[in-house]
Design a protein around this nucleic acid. Sequence first.
DNA 1: AACTGTGAAACCTTTCACAGCT
DNA 2: AGCTGTGAAAGGTTTCACAGTT
Lengths: 233, 233
Amino acid sequence: MTSSSLSHDVGEQRRRATVPDATVARLPLYLRALHLLAEQGYETVSSEELAEAAGVNSAKLRKDLSHLGSYGTRGVGYDVTHLVEQISSQLGLGRRCSVVLVGVGNLGRALAGYGGFANRGLAVDALLDADEATVGQQIAGLTVRHVDELGEVAGPGSIAVIATPAAAAQEVCDRLVAAGVTSILNFAPVVLSVPAHVDLRKVDLAVELQILSFHEHRKAAGADERVPAGASA
Amino acid sequence: MTSSSLSHDVGEQRRRATVPDATVARLPLYLRALHLLAEQGYETVSSEELAEAAGVNSAKLRKDLSHLGSYGTRGVGYDVTHLVEQISSQLGLGRRCSVVLVGVGNLGRALAGYGGFANRGLAVDALLDADEATVGQQIAGLTVRHVDELGEVAGPGSIAVIATPAAAAQEVCDRLVAAGVTSILNFAPVVLSVPAHVDLRKVDLAVELQILSFHEHRKAAGADERVPAGASA
DNA sequence: AACTGTGAAACCTTTCACAGCT
DNA sequence: AGCTGTGAAAGGTTTCACAGTT
């Protein structure tokens, strides 16, 4: 067990090492909302307005931003441009960070051309596939290369996206790790294993649909069974 | 201590109305892992094994399953087939629930053919698009219909998936709501507004990538700045 | 002996409400 | 007056550790 002296371990030197995960997950949201507001001519926004645009409540937004530092002005709000810069910088969108996408099926193509990806500082800059018929094609301004050339485009510092069929994902993942990649985003519906030092995230397109189904099912079941007629709104 | 002396409190009629959100979000994961294990010939699994296959820890798994009821056998584990049925039923995958997909671009195509979708009880069964060139095409065994025919395929009880460009999403959403749909999954990178009774979920393909970027950035910044040399392996 | 089911503790996130700055 | 930044309260989730069951 842990020593009973509790949580004083880590030194103070990690000043901003403490942005909560939940907050990080919302920064991209704020960033998009801010870009939108900027296009509409806003120079400053209140937490209320920005929260509305991002689809969260204002207390949460303020708390989130407070974790990055104090970038607002009391009585006024936040400077849109400045806040965009701060968040972008936090997210590491400024530095040239190569994004490599493996698997150029429908999903891969969608991702390669995705506004959200290409938009601000995080464009995909290499496409790889195993299929000879796909290799050589021009997609979203890039030429698809063979997955065997993976070592030439991916390395420490790059972010890899796996959009292959489930069956191929683990092998691709292993190759990426061997090439030194430590940040991987997996869209294939399998649980991948990676060494502890690799940061692996997962997007499962079916999960959200199944969650919806759960709630839809609940609604229907509730209506069937014993609810006292129009109970909820 | 099952229903003996201290079964006080909450009305009993809401027996299973209390599955926590976090648990619901993991059920699809367990389901997939179970299907995999079933294919490999498992008839029972321990919480340890299933947790491993699903990529979570066993305490969490047991707690999650306990919210659905007690389907395990102490000293033995869980019956794979039975558990699959229980979870499927919770998720409403048994009942025929029509899934309508609007927007047949690359992402739409990917979703229509997605193993995870088509796989178990939640196949997409109508495709709609606004583009005349796309309407009429055969995709994943379905003929693409014009979005104006939305009212004919979507209604109360169906689940809708929006995979259109951002600019079209709100209008499609409004039409879906007008048609009586109350469960919508949005892949377009915009914040949609819906009436309170509609259940709207959102998948943002770029968010996860940006979260990875955040962590990658941290790693790099940490290495640059002040870390006490080779602290971690 | 093996393994589930679950209170209780630890941890994390959200919301509230207001002090403090402009 | 208006709005941010933030302690403190409330709520939710994960982990621990063990009683209970087969």
